[in-house]
Write a protein that binds this DNA or RNA. Structure first.
Lengths: 161, 161
DNA sequence: GCGGGTTTGTTACAGTGTATCACCGCGGCC
DNA sequence: GGCCGCGGTGATACACTGTAACAAACCCGC
């Protein structure tokens, strides 16, 4: 796991994420505006899932207020491009760590101790879920899978403090 | 699938649900008060996921207002007892259709057409998810799995209207 | 320069959920 | 009976999350 230490080890990927976003937008002919960049940066630096209002506050400074609605718009854009994910169980947002194959299912691992969110994926889970849905006669369009618990580092920290 | 027809075929289980709730509360020494009963009844009769404010409105009548906060408290109680589930992706609530084994994972199948929510479970999914989590060094406490799509009846209705 | 699309700012508002305090009813206890 | 504690409810207020609508700024091609 990464991106949830609470210190700067987790910030390592921020630059990569921004670079990837910039390249991806250029490739698709979309605008990677300063606001969108700042929002993505704020999400990437946080180390844990951020609410839209948290981001707005983080980006605001005396004399320069960023309204939540602007943050929501930037987040909508970034989600459309697959650059951030929304954690439904927390009403919060995280940067997309790895470029997923489009349509690939993602599993969010949410640590209740450090608040960090990691992503996982598993063809095995996806296959068994697909079979279960088919058996139920259900045609899926979109699925969310979020697991809360303790990440490895936090669990060890609890055992040996 | 059941409980999402939009007509009264889906109401069949309401009585069962109430009876089960009453028995369960008596067994556990908890109070199945009129308010809690009404909230559960409203959720069970609706045929689709209900927001807390929907329930409050449904239970309110001229001269008898039920405040949302009361509904939330009743819902918290009912969720603690496993009698209703919360659909995180919709901010809404549904009755628990079947008594699950405690700790058993539930898959919510949310029909985007009729709005009905069905429950499924699969040991296969649970097993593969457990293995994936273990591989990631993650210790789960609670997981939510919600799938959006078209239920069988709605899909057929679309193909042959 | 000009028209048309996109992005952003601003305000207002709708929807979701929680905190707090007062009150009520009920059962135990002296 | 009177008292107390406790869980449930009512009521108000508030915080948090998200969207609608419109105006202004910006950019880009023509």
């Amino acid at each position: 796991m990464h991106r949830h230490e609470g210190h700067d080890a987790c910030h390592a990927g921020t630059g990569d994420i921004l670079a990837r976003a910039e390249a991806l937008c250029r490739e698709r002919g979309l605008q990677f505006t300063p606001l969108r960049r700042e929002v993505l940066e704020a999400v990437a630096e946080a180390g844990k899932a951020q609410g839209a209002y948290d981001i707005a506050e983080r980006l605001s400074a005396p004399g320069k207020r960023v309204a939540p609605v602007s943050v929501y718009r930037a987040l909508d854009f970034l989600m459309d491009q697959g650059l951030v994910h929304r954690i439904a169980s927390r009403n919060a947002f995280i940067p997309c760590a790895h470029g997923h194959a489009p349509g690939e299912g993602v599993i969010f691992l949410i640590c209740r101790t450090c608040g960090g969110v990691d992503e996982a994926s598993s063809e095995e889970v996806e296959g068994s879920l697909g079979r279960t849905l088919e058996r139920a006669g259900f045609t899926p369009t979109h699925s969310i899978l979020e697991v809360e618990g303790d990440c490895g580092t936090c669990r060890q920290r609890k055992l040996a403090p």
